[in-house]
Amino acid sequence: MKGLLNYVEGNSVLHRMNPLSKLIIALLISVSCFLCKGHLFLLGVILVNLALAAVGGIFNRALGLLKTLIKLSIVLFLLQVFFIRDGNILLRLPLNIYITDMGLSFSLLLVLRLMGATMPLTLMLSLTQMNDLSNVMVEKLGIPYKYVFVLITAIRFIPVFMNDMQAIMEAQTARGVEFDTRNIFKKIGLILPLCVPLLVSSVKRIEYGALSAELRGFHHRKKNSGYKQYGFKVQDIGGLALFTLLLVASVFL
């Protein structure tokens, strides 16, 4: 999981695309995952995601992400499949628990959607510099920088907090807190008191962040303050057209 959202250097077509079109494409893929009703179509979308990752040179990262998602999906699938009681019963278990064909189909659809829709946004963030993304949102969409900053900061802080948590857990293990236990429930119980140091360091970090942003003229940043221009090129129009087709296909297939 570590470094999942970090930018990966590169010069592929996807790297050179306009950040806004990348964002829109990611959203198009996600939305089409939720609109379509076919399992095969969703499998296709997942493959498209992997193909896009390969083009951007982050195939291994995408594979790692997919593995994590599959683990999560198994848990979700198991939870879901027992709760749908409509349809023909395929398997009867004791305690009046059974699995139906509808339950199976719906649960599979749900986890495939989860996988297909989560990947594009994560991959997009790996192929786009945060600064470019925030600049383009201000410049092209006209969203006030303040709001863009909130969004970007939230994304940027995820790996920072993960590192912090890791360091805190190391420090506590060194004191004798049994984080290296195999018992997962015990581990969760032990993590709770650690929210205090994490909270304290986060609040401090955010306060420093706000202070330094203000010192650098945060409030004076407007739509035309950016130095870089973000134009739309052939690859942007082509990409957008292609994935709009995907969206249309998802409704009709």
């Binding site: 912090d164 360091a167 805190i168 190391e170 420090a171 506590q172 293990t173 060194a174 004191r175 004798g176 807190v177 049994e178 984080f179 290296d180 236990t181 008191p193 650690l194 205090v196 140091p197 304290v200 360091s201």
Partner: peptide
């Protein structure tokens, strides 16, 4: 050997005390 077990023999003071302090 688990780190939490080694903690009985080794005391470790980190550079940043804020990672260690967790009580009020």
């Amino acid at each position: 050997t688990k780190t939490s077990e080694l903690a009985r023999t080794i005391g470790f003071l980190f550079q940043n005390p804020d990672r260690q302090i967790c009580q009020t």
